[in-house]
Simulated assay, not measured.
Amino acid sequence: MAPRVWHISGANKGLGLQLALKAIKEGDRVIAAVRSPDKVPDELKNDSIKVLQFDLSWSQDEFNSYAKKAFDVFGSVDVLVNNAGYAYLGAIEESEDEAVKQQFDVNVFAMLRVIRAFLPALRKQGSGTIMNLSSIGGVSSFPTNGIYCASKFAVEAITQALAGEVEPFGLQCVAVEPGYFRTEFLANANTSQSANLAPAIDAYDGTPAHDARKALDDYNGKQPGNPEKGVARMWEYVAGEGMFAGAVRSW
């Protein structure tokens, strides 16, 4: 079987990086889509990996041009992984309009622009998988995570609809719902300096919202999930191997 080509956004760290490394270990090739190509880790400097500059703030036209460039790298894209994103955290009352809009623009609208950009070539190709990174927070919401979870609920709805829409073209679409994995994800929620944490309202001290806020720092780096095991399941889903061997994958 010819090597698969993975396009992975946010491939310079966390689950994106681990998935890229898993793919090349299995003989596949990777287009690593990152905002700052000059800052990629040494692990991505590999003949089976092509690093492309990628920015979730781009317009639809910019993504359309980018998608053509991505398909030209290895001649195809077999797995489109929408992994890049972040969490804006805080109680609902603490949330601020512009920050909420930015959360949805990155986690939802940018994902939509990427999907629209890649779908014409994927449909023409007649095969491929679109893998959207949701979260356990896309299934159930929690105090101080409401805005982030709302964006992931949207990812779930989009993915479920898209799966039915693209199946006639030989394409698959799946949402991945990671739980608590040891990545840098919570590092951006450091309560002393993060712009991704809404300003605190003292009235919530001693309530579940601020208990959860405090836990962001306490839990960082201590999450139970092993990223390497997580991405192994993602690769197996696409390959139809491991726990997905013989599984019927249909929306």
Results as ranks from 00 to 15, higher is better:
residue 93 E to V: 08
residue 106 V to N: 08
residue 117 A to P: 01
residue 221 G to F: 12
residue 116 R to H: 13
residue 19 L to W: 05
residue 229 K to D: 15
residue 220 N to R: 07
residue 48 S to I: 07
residue 128 G to E: 06
residue 200 A to T: 14
residue 169 F to W: 06
residue 96 E to Y: 11
residue 10 G to A: 04
residue 92 I to E: 09
residue 249 R to M: 15
residue 175 A to L: 06
residue 182 R to W: 02
residue 39 K to N: 13
residue 212 A to Q: 13
residue 230 G to V: 06
residue 126 G to C: 02
residue 153 F to W: 13
residue 122 L to D: 01
residue 51 V to R: 05
residue 38 D to F: 09
residue 239 A to Y: 05
residue 1 M to S: 13
residue 5 V to S: 07
residue 208 P to L: 10
residue 146 G to K: 03
residue 57 S to C: 08
residue 212 A to C: 03
residue 6 W to F: 14
residue 66 Y to T: 05
residue 81 V to K: 01
residue 100 V to K: 06
residue 101 K to A: 05
residue 11 A to D: 10
residue 164 G to V: 01
residue 251 W to N: 09
residue 65 S to E: 15
residue 154 A to W: 02
residue 55 D to T: 07
residue 45 K to F: 00
residue 97 D to R: 14
residue 25 K to R: 14
residue 242 G to M: 05
residue 219 Y to Q: 14
residue 196 N to V: 02
residue 240 G to V: 08
residue 48 S to A: 15
residue 242 G to L: 07
residue 9 S to R: 01
residue 60 Q to A: 10
residue 190 N to L: 03
residue 251 W to G: 02
residue 184 E to N: 14
residue 37 P to I: 08
residue 157 A to P: 00
residue 167 E to W: 10
residue 184 E to P: 13
residue 223 Q to K: 11
residue 152 K to G: 08
residue 162 L to F: 04
residue 148 Y to D: 12
residue 218 D to T: 07
residue 76 S to Q: 14
residue 70 A to I: 01
residue 222 K to V: 08
residue 195 A to M: 11
residue 170 G to P: 01
residue 226 N to H: 10
residue 171 L to D: 00
residue 10 G to E: 05
residue 52 L to W: 04
residue 152 K to M: 09
residue 91 A to F: 00
residue 229 K to Q: 13
residue 201 I to K: 12
residue 97 D to G: 11
residue 108 V to M: 01
residue 204 Y to S: 05
residue 219 Y to V: 10
residue 183 T to M: 06
residue 60 Q to G: 01
residue 65 S to H: 13
residue 140 S to W: 15
residue 186 L to I: 00
residue 24 I to L: 11
residue 46 N to L: 09
residue 36 S to Q: 14
residue 237 Y to P: 00
residue 96 E to P: 02
residue 24 I to F: 11
